[in-house]
Design a protein around this nucleic acid. Structure first.
Lengths: 202, 202
DNA sequence: GCCAGAACTGTACTTTGGTGCAATGGTGTA
DNA sequence: TACACCATTGCACCAAAGTACAGTTCTGGC
């Protein structure tokens, strides 16, 4: 498997050379006309966007793109993947890691750093949980008709006074319903109620 | 690196043997007292939950868990990761794939099948986009760094006192920031702020 | 008929949220 | 240097939210 390191200035880090001694190093300007089959490692310097660096056409059938990012964060990695890369890791990763990335990518896999992966998977897990919780809609099940009505209004940022006017009841009654709602759902205040009803943050 | 295949009946698939000829095969009942350092491959049969199969204690410092699932889907993989596994792949994966999984996991990585990864990352990308769009809603653009920070905490239902403690500032300062936030965004109180940040109706 | 639960309300109280006024210190820019 | 903006805080004040205790009315089920 041939490796191509493609950077603005045709400079390869020592770790890259150590990982793939037989690799070719190219400046971006020349890369288009020279590069053949194999793994193309694109260096993404600070402030650069993946879309500027990766060829818009995407990888050929016999090529794989990998991004070596100076500042790999969640957004960067996603941009890289969207732009056709099969992986994204830190520019200064150890040679062993680079080799591992190469192995995975060469076999048609995707590579994202484990910290990112953990975060992403964790996030997904949280999202799924929340979605299930939201779907359960259990909040309204626990409440009486009137309580749920008040709760809904609170969740849309109405004040007690407004709710009272709207339902033609006293402000005191609104408070009574709310106290009951908080107690039943184990919440502290109207803001928590709002999050519970509107489906948590994100 | 020692490999241990752990199944209900101490049966290993031919592909497993091919991938790791030196592996030990154990029945679940005996595994607890026998297994040592290395990679522990747990077979998850149809209908079984990851939590039933994986030791609740999680992997020891010199161990890694991998789940071989008969029916790997998104939920299963997430359950496995939550339960302490470093990877999850199809029970009937090719030997080369198993070896690759072993390599990644042995080096402290996480492994999830690429189809799942693509899906998860795709979903995450969508979510992040939405989040950015919602965030772009320019609310944060209008605010100073500190104001945005306070706003975010408010949006997650923290009280002023909690925010003050968390940011190591006085409650009065929190209030000051909030007053400024309300003014800049044209809002009345923290509940409206929460809705603005978390994305209104739906 | 009795009881449970809901809806409703009042008085009184504590806590939290939000504003006005005033002040200090830092940073950056015309 | 002067000016603008930000971060910080204190004191005082008012409004809103939430709780405690107490009470009425109505409805449906045992």
């Amino acid at each position: 498997m041939q490796h191509w390191f493609i950077d603005r200035q045709a400079i390869a880090l020592p770790t890259w050379r150590e990982a793939m001694p037989a690799a070719q190093v190219l400046a971006r300007a020349r890369a288009g006309s020279v590069v053949g089959a194999g793994i193309l490692w694109f260096r993404l310097r600070s402030g650069e966007a993946a879309s500027e660096v990766l060829p818009a056409a995407g990888p050929a059938a016999d090529q794989h793109f990998v991004v070596l990012s100076d500042e790999p964060d969640e957004d960067t990695v996603l941009q890289c993947l969207t732009a056709g890369a099969a992986g994204c890791c830190n520019s200064h990763a150890a040679p062993e890691v680079l080799q591992q990335v190469a192995l995975v990518v060469a076999n048609g896999g995707l590579w994202v750093g484990q910290s990112l992966l953990r975060r992403v998977m964790g996030g997904t897990a949280r999202i799924i949980e929340q979605r299930q919780q939201a779907r359960n809609d259990d909040w309204s099940a626990l409440l009486s008709e009137r309580e749920a009505e008040v709760a809904r209004l609170v969740a849309s940022a109405s004040s007690n006074k407004e709710i009272a006017r709207q339902l033609s009841i006293s402000e005191r009654t609104v408070k009574a319903h709310l106290t009951s709602v908080f107690e039943k759902l184990g919440l502290r205040d109207r803001l928590q109620l709002s999050l519970r009803i509107n489906g948590l943050p994100r």
